[in-house]
Design a protein around this nucleic acid. Structure first.
Length: 298
DNA sequence: CCATGAGGAGAGACTTTTAG
DNA sequence: CTAAAAGTCTCTCCTCATGG
């Protein structure tokens, strides 16, 4: 596209056409009268046409000037519409926060945090991406999510990883299970149990597999669920026991189950808050970021 | 009351230097 | 060797002073 004149010149012309006085138009545009004179001169040169007939007595539009004025007014209105729509878009973007989060946190901790957040930020819309740890990391890296809550990403240079807390793995069992009378569980105990696991796509499973592989006798996995919630459902139904992150049993979501911290060896993961390195968070996202740090650490 | 010449500030283009 | 930063030059557009 090629334009021989500029926005400022069109604005100058419209202002002179409205006031029919260079001095008054210059004041309105916050420029000197000679500067305005030159803008008009430049526009006329670009169009190769006289738009204003001026003498020391009066200023008036030529026929060409009247015709161009019609177009010029439309141009300025269109520009103003464009500006207004961009302002509106920016303000809507500021009011949406996307948080990517591993399912155990999304199901058991995040709802309470979002409830508190709604108290101070009622107008902000929230989008939750509850996915595996790897996908949470990707969502933050690609800018799809403003912040992430996961236990992967601490080593990634493009991620700011703030550790929130260390989360022990527990053995989820029903209250009527023989092991429920003890306070901890040993990995060796699993040999006699029907083990329920989450799928190999889950970051949890990778950590658990590392321990299982080191045991003298590897327990058999009888059931496999895609997510932690599915595994808990199977445990609740009395089909077996499952090694899961402790948060999965927080807040008494499953009153029929107890979580026994795993021993010999202990296993834990470090839950952290992720954001893209160097990215500037909106005010709404920063507020949620700080609230998550404060509440999950408690 | 608008136009024009002189002088100066600032933006942008272009070149050189420096750091990774 | 590449890309970013710093330095220099050029050009545009402004204000001020003043003419017609």
């Amino acid at each position: 596209m090629r334009l021989d004149f500029e926005f400022g010149e069109v604005l100058a012309f419209v202002t002179v056409a409205q006031t029919l006085n260079f001095r008054a138009a210059a004041d309105r545009l916050y420029i000197s009268q000679p500067a305005l004179s030159r803008r008009i001169e430049k526009l006329e040169a670009a169009l190769d046409m006289r738009l204003l007939e001026r003498t020391t007595r009066k200023v008036e539009l030529t026929d060409a000037g009247r015709q161009f004025l019609n177009h010029a007014v439309v141009i300025l209105e269109e520009l103003d519409l464009a500006r207004a729509s961009m302002v509106e878009r920016a303000s809507r973007a500021k009011q949406l926060v996307t948080v990517a989060c591993v399912p155990s946190v999304a199901n058991h901790v995040l709802p309470e945090i979002l409830r508190l957040y709604a108290g101070t930020h009622a107008g902000v819309r929230i989008r939750v991406i509850d996915e595996s740890a790897g996908k949470v990391l990707d969502a933050v890296l690609e800018g799809e999510a403003d912040i992430g809550i996961s236990f992967l990403g601490a080593q990634n240079a493009d991620i700011d990883f703030t550790p929130i807390r260390s989360e022990p793995y527990v053995l989820a069992v029903r209250r009527d299970h023989p092991l429920a009378v003890t306070t901890t569980a040993r990995w060796a105990d699993l040999e006699r149990e029907r083990l329920i696991a989450v799928s190999l796509n889950s970051g949890n499973r990778v950590l658990i597999e590392n321990v299982l592989a080191s045991l003298p006798r590897r327990p058999t996995i009888h059931y496999e669920a895609n997510h932690v919630a599915g595994a808990l459902g199977l445990v609740s139904a009395g089909l077996g026991v499952a090694v899961l992150p402790g948060l999965a049993l927080a807040n008494d979501t499953y009153p029929g189950l107890v979580g026994l911290p795993m021993r010999e060896p202990e296993l834990s993961r470090t839950l952290g808050l992720l954001s893209r390195a160097g990215a500037r968070l909106s005010q709404a996202a920063t507020a949620l970021h700080d609230l998550v740090l404060q509440k999950i650490a408690e």
